[in-house]
Design a protein around this nucleic acid. Structure first.
Lengths: 179, 179
DNA sequence: TTCCCTGCAAAGGGTTTGCACCCCA
DNA sequence: TGGGGTGCAAACCCTTTGCAGGGAA
């Protein structure tokens, strides 16, 4: 299965060491926070979380650390065209998932599909490129909401700004992966 | 095949009429420019192009018109995570294409693939959603550049900010579409 | 006349950066 | 002690918005 939180932290530390940058208290704090959650977060949300541990940490440090984590390959930067970046720590353990965003409630569902993954690779190859980074984003309307008028997520997650993926969604998506 | 430029303009006009908004001189000017090119462009680039025809046109009008064109379904808004939005007029004539971005030169290659399209729809359906909008973005490294050290695009298109898709790329991609 | 639309300029929101200070190696 | 790292605040960039003037219905 996926990597454990500790293993992920170790890998990031190794990456920073290899790159010759120091593992400072602030960076360590940020790494701990980032990889102890499965939630997607914005830079600002990470700052909030970090300040609960270390009230002195600055916004600049957060913005300077995030690209390091992304470069390490353990954190994924995403852009759903909402004017800010979202970060997904689940790539550390599940590097092949993609996202479906509900147009009704903004909920983000993670899914994995090996067939699609392969197809996308084949397309890149046939175009003469070596695939480096693939992003499949689906915006979809909740069928349950259409059919029955209610949606489990609609109730508690109207504000798309604060919606998060949850662990269950990825597991469920894997289970449902098409044959 | 695809719709002609005039047909696209007609559709947009119809959309605006149905929506009850006026086809002003400024909007007409912008529509002409947007749909007489196959290039991707930013809001700012559209402003530049528009001012060559009408030096009085304002940035605000451009920013207010773009969402109308997107809403009409004839123009696609894209976000490659570069801090600004790109607009793709080719969706008017080819609504099912996606994009590969070269990590070497920033070139954007358009491609269509029915198999992948279907797969993505199936995934959305199996997750319980009605697919509304699908975006597949591939970042890839130019194999020619890797193999031979040169790349036709590398020479004339280093600045990713000004790179554009060309008509040929879409046609070529269709030809190469996987069976 | 009414109401939509425009241009101007200022405001907004996310992100980056210059600079002085700090601190570990 | 040298050079990276941090915090602060200002700068940046793209985009949105308030407002007064203007023009089509």
């Amino acid at each position: 299965m996926g990597k454990s939180t500790n293993e992920v932290r170790g890998r990031v530390s190794d990456f920073l060491a290899a790159k010759g940058v120091r593992l400072t208290a602030q960076r360590s704090c940020l790494i701990d926070i980032v990889f102890s959650t499965t939630r997607h977060f914005t830079a600002d949300e990470l700052l909030d979380m970090a300040r609960r541990k270390d009230p002195e940490i600055s916004r600049a440090t957060v913005y300077r650390t995030l690209p390091l984590l992304v470069e390490s390959g353990m954190l994924k930067e995403m852009d759903f065209g909402e004017g800010r970046k979202l970060y997904d720590p689940n790539y550390a353990t599940n590097p092949h998932h993609n996202h479906l965003i509900c147009t009704d409630c903004g909920r983000i569902v993670e899914f994995e599909d090996a067939v699609m993954e392969r197809r996308v690779d084949d397309i890149a190859t046939s175009l003469g490129y070596i695939p480096i980074n693939k992003s499949v984003q689906i915006k979809g309307a909740c069928r349950t909401l259409r059919d029955s008028g209610t949606c489990a997520n609609k109730n508690n997650s109207q504000s798309s700004k604060t919606n998060r993926a949850n662990t269950a969604s990825l597991k469920a998506a894997k289970r449902r992966t098409l044959k």
